[in-house]
Design a protein around this nucleic acid. Sequence first.
DNA 1: TTGAAAGCGTTACCAA
DNA 2: TTGGTAACGCTTTCAA
Lengths: 340, 340
Amino acid sequence: MSQLPNQPTEGPVPTSADVARLAGVSRATVSYVMSGSTTVRISEPTRRRVRAAATELGYVPHAAARSLRAGHSRTVLLPTVDLPAGPLHHHFLHELESGLRGLDYTVVQYGSTGLDADEAARAWAELRPVAVVAPGTIPLTPRGISTLRRSGARAVITLGPRPVTGAHALVMDQREIGGRAVAHLLARGRRRIGVIMPEERGLGPYAEPRLAGARDGARNHAALVEPVPLRYEEDAAVGLAARWRDLGFDAVFAYDDTYAMLLMRALEDAGVDVPGETAVIGADDLVLGRLLRPRLSTVRTEPATDQPLADLVDRLVRRPGAAPEHHDLLRAAVVHRESS
Amino acid sequence: MSQLPNQPTEGPVPTSADVARLAGVSRATVSYVMSGSTTVRISEPTRRRVRAAATELGYVPHAAARSLRAGHSRTVLLPTVDLPAGPLHHHFLHELESGLRGLDYTVVQYGSTGLDADEAARAWAELRPVAVVAPGTIPLTPRGISTLRRSGARAVITLGPRPVTGAHALVMDQREIGGRAVAHLLARGRRRIGVIMPEERGLGPYAEPRLAGARDGARNHAALVEPVPLRYEEDAAVGLAARWRDLGFDAVFAYDDTYAMLLMRALEDAGVDVPGETAVIGADDLVLGRLLRPRLSTVRTEPATDQPLADLVDRLVRRPGAAPEHHDLLRAAVVHRESS
DNA sequence: TTGAAAGCGTTACCAA
DNA sequence: TTGGTAACGCTTTCAA
């Protein structure tokens, strides 16, 4: 094991010039060695001297200086908000992140809570990312998109429930989820369907399309579809259950399995029979749905494309200026269990 | 509404020189106006001309160039891994992120899955962050810490279950959770305690200290504490429940409420009475615990400090070189319900 | 095989 | 009140 510097030198940060000096070569040579350039032949002894000097000084190249000189970066910016975003969103985000890293991009998440659309776009543009993949929960205006493109971003992509004009879109269309749920309930003879809408901030962009899909699904049937707001708290559910019979629903599509569980428990405590009196279906197929009694019916969502997201982003970066593309990322299917 | 550029010019990115040219001033003047410098007086008409030119060109300053020139950045790097990390971890991360932004830091999350400790440290160092707050799930070696410090990081901080030698530490000591759980079970007369250990990768850094705390808590009592591995899947739980009576436990401390729910359901289906035959306690006080029957006892964790994390990081940045500090972030308390 | 020098976009100092 | 200039750390062409 090599000697570690025992005093975390508070001194200046070593640069390639320091390495060059220590190794007795020029800065150019250091650069060649560090980047493993093959266009220039450097003797093996020299390489070793340079590497040893770099290690001794703890030299790490300065990314900003490099990309400044290069005129471009390989930074992909993923703005984030700190709101819950659904398991599939996380799945995609993770896949995207590791895939892009594999393609040698530097992936950086940048918290953007509380910034308005154009402030956010400017803040992102300062970092000169080669691509931006923004969640649908952050509004992206045409002006913001323009700012980003003019700052050198070769791809501006939204990832969310809705496409955004002017940007490429990876669409997770939540409407199909609502549509499937309602079709299932209709097929089982239900006609008065409540749709649980979370009152939690930030879930709207997901919940609204699910409701819209539910409504569309009931369009040509003599059926009622009505939103029912609910906070994710026990007493809210108890209150709702207490006036449940007055509402007159014979079925309910909950925003997701966790809300379904919350409601189902409250209904049971209030003496409402599930599924006899009210059928319940959730969404997202969480493990907990199988643990409930009755077992929870749900709408499972799964990736609709086997093309890795990262490849898609990479392609958009390489062929910029192409017309905005929309890609549907979601497939939805009902998993029928006991609660419906 | 002002005129938007109708062609997303594929041309070169505008620089302050372009703005200067268009406004008929020097680059220096542009810089003064854009950064709102007060040390230099610029006439109001000039300011207006500069701002108009900047808007027209869609000019956004180049962060890398700025920090290169300045010799330092206000970037705080939060390396992330894509593993589940507990609700409190998320809470802290979010608080830290928004707090730091309020203190005018640029907070950036950087995915580091799959990198080894020293590779990761080098990758982070390339970005020249002024501070790094690394989750405990990413091992940080003395060498890595040294690399970061020498690259100009004024604070290297770990956020996780364990302090790391040489770095500041925001400790979320999970041991107390196990300790409280076991103390509670002992007080209720239980003597043979199983501790559910998730088999899921990445939970180890949280689960192990919880187990250690449980063992410590039983030290001076004639009690048995034994780990029981469990995958978070229904059939794994069913299998465990089937041989439950052979194991001879009269109580179980589950890693968290979700594992507790999984096990409790399987035990119930296997005819094991809870809490009569086996007492169950979870952790993290999730909403679902109150929805279970019997209602789930749990160990609630809450922030132990009312000093905002961001202020703490800020202080460490301003007073670098100070001896490593440890801060305990967690307080744990048993919430007794029906399952124990 | 190596070195000198230019230039990426900024900002801070010093003159005008 | 404004402008010229140098410097931040790096890569790359051109010459030696």
